[in-house]
Every structure is written in structure tokens, then in C-alpha cells.
């Protein structure tokens, strides 16, 4: 069973979102997503300062057998990208929800947060995909 922390929000494309409470969010990929992709070998991250639209492809996570686009869960500006992943992409496998974060966004429109899934809804989505 994959780990789905209840304090986080999720997207249908398997990103997780942590609402930091200061108008920013931190984004990563879910434990379920990392398990599907397998051992990470490379991560391509957006440059800080980039403006993103919700749903825009903005990062790539790469394993030996797959490369998967990561979509911006919401509109806003990239504040920071996780440089640790450049040398240690496997951190996403070992700690998807903490040290394995991908980037932080300063939100342009907090209303977009309502579009996200809560942990329960995301767990249902994962369960469905398993069938």
C-alpha cells in the first residue's frame, strides 16, 4: 500500500502539494508515483523565477525505464527548486514527501487550491488505477 499523508493535497497526475500558509506551496510526486516509475536517475527542474500556468509541464522525473512529466498544480512563480536532487535523484524514492520535494511556487490565485484532491480522494484514485 502506498503512503498518502493526510495533511497534503494531491493532483490526478500524482503530484503532492503542501500548503505552506504564506501564499506558497511545495510540490513533489507521490509515493505511489515514485513506486511506479522505479529508481530515479535524473530530475529536470524549473528555474526559479519561471512563471507557470496550472497544468503546464514544468519538470521531468526520469527512471531507467520511464520519463514522466510533472505538471504545475497551480499558477504562480517558481521560488525555489530542490538542488539536492541533481546529485541524489534517488531521494525521491526514499523520501518522496520531505527531502524529495521538487519545487516551490508562489501562488497567483489561491482559489485554485480548491481544485486539488484531499488524501482520501487521492487514495481512491490510486486504488482504482490498481485495477
Amino acid at each position: 500500500m502506498s503512503n498518502i499523508p493526510s495533511e497534503l493535497k494531491y493532483t490526478k497526475s500524482h503530484e503532492w502539494v503542501r500548503i505552506e500558509g504564506d501564499g506558497t506551496v511545495t510540490v513533489g510526486i507521490s509515493d505511489h508515483a515514485q513506486a511506479l516509475l522505479g529508481d530515479m536517475v535524473f530530475v529536470e527542474l524549473p528555474e526559479p523565477g519561471t512563471s507557470l500556468d496550472a497544468g503546464e509541464e514544468c519538470a521531468v522525473v526520469e527512471s531507467v525505464k520511464a520519463a514522466s512529466d510533472v505538471y504545475a498544480p497551480m499558477t504562480g512563480e517558481v521560488l525555489a527548486a530542490n538542488e539536492l536532487l541533481e546529485d541524489a535523484p534517488e531521494t525521491i524514492n526514499t523520501d518522496a514527501y520531505n527531502d524529495g520535494w521538487l519545487f516551490r511556487i508562489k501562488l497567483a490565485d489561491e482559489a485554485e487550491l480548491k481544485e486539488l484532491l484531499d488524501a482520501e480522494a487521492y487514495a481512491e484514485l490510486v486504488a482504482e488505477e490498481d485495477h
Binding site: 527512471s63 531507467v64 525505464k65 520511464a66 520519463a67 512529466d69
Partner: peptide, 12 residues
């Protein structure tokens, strides 16, 4: 580095 290639990355 096969994730660059067409059999994995397809249109990208």
C-alpha cells in the same frame, strides 16, 4: 540514458 529516446519519451 534511454529515457531520451523515442521508445520511452515518444513525442518528446
Amino acid at each position: 540514458l534511454q529515457a531520451r529516446e523515442q521508445h520511452i519519451r515518444r513525442s518528446k
